[in-house]
């Protein structure tokens, strides 16, 4: 043991790395639009707070309703934005498509080109969803990625990866677990995790 303890390793602060080109562009556009009066700094703050406040609980409510109400399930599969509006949820202007897990098909969502995600329904995506590691491997070896999440999909069940490359966002309707007949809709919603609606988990 040394008499002189080693200094704690220096951990850089976020500001220690230079702004990237895209950060500079984003900041510049915000400043210009604010200066020109297109929106105010307060509008910007309110919008960010509204987006930050969205949680996966909105999606969970929709899934739980689909589990207990067959007609709602059909409407959700037909048009997520319209169906969730029935529950008082504003899913935003971008069309969201629900894909349903069955005994034969397990769905999982990715955006290989960037990080498209149903934010208006599920909130901000987890960091790993935006990582190059997830985006490149889940479409290449989805079963290995699912195993890394502790999710085993048996052979014979089709793993269907949805790459949301264009104008749609996707969400997964997981299968309702067995032994939940005594749960009410609110209790069911608590079972529906964010990752189950991405498809990296099953319930």
């Amino acid at each position: 043991m040394s008499d002189h303890p080693q200094p704690h390793p220096f951990q850089p602060d976020i500001e220690d790395s230079p702004f990237t080109r895209y950060q500079v562009m984003a900041e510049s556009v915000i400043e210009l639009l604010t200066e020109k009066g297109v929106f105010s700094a307060d509008d910007m703050r309110r919008t960010l707070e509204r987006i930050d406040a969205i949680t996966p609980a909105q999606g969970s409510r929709a899934v739980a309703r689909a589990w207990v109400d067959e007609a709602f399930r059909a409407r959700l599969l037909d048009n997520v934005n319209a169906a969730t509006a029935e529950l008082g949820i504003d899913a935003g202007p971008i069309p969201i498509r629900a894909v349903e897990n069955t005994a034969d098909v397990h769905n999982v969502i990715v955006c290989t080109l960037c990080s498209c995600y149903p934010r208006m329904l599920l909130g901000l995506p987890p960091d790993w969803y935006k990582s190059r590691a997830y985006r490149s491997s889940v479409v290449r070896e989805p079963r290995a990625v699912l195993e890394a999440f502790g999710t085993h999909i048996p052979d014979g069940v089709e793993v269907r990866v949805h790459d949301s490359t264009a104008e749609l966002r996707y969400m997964v309707i997981p299968m309702r677990p067995a032994g939940t007949t005594d749960l009410d809709e609110a209790g069911l919603a608590e079972l529906v995790s964010r990752d189950a609606m991405i498809g990296t988990a099953v319930i």
Partner: peptide, 18 residues
């Protein structure tokens, strides 16, 4: 998509294409 794909042969990828 991947000639050496190691998962189940029924696995698919669904991609939105213009």
């Amino acid at each position: 998509l991947w000639p050496d794909y190691a998962g189940d042969p029924s696995d698919t990828a669904v991609v939105d294409i213009y």
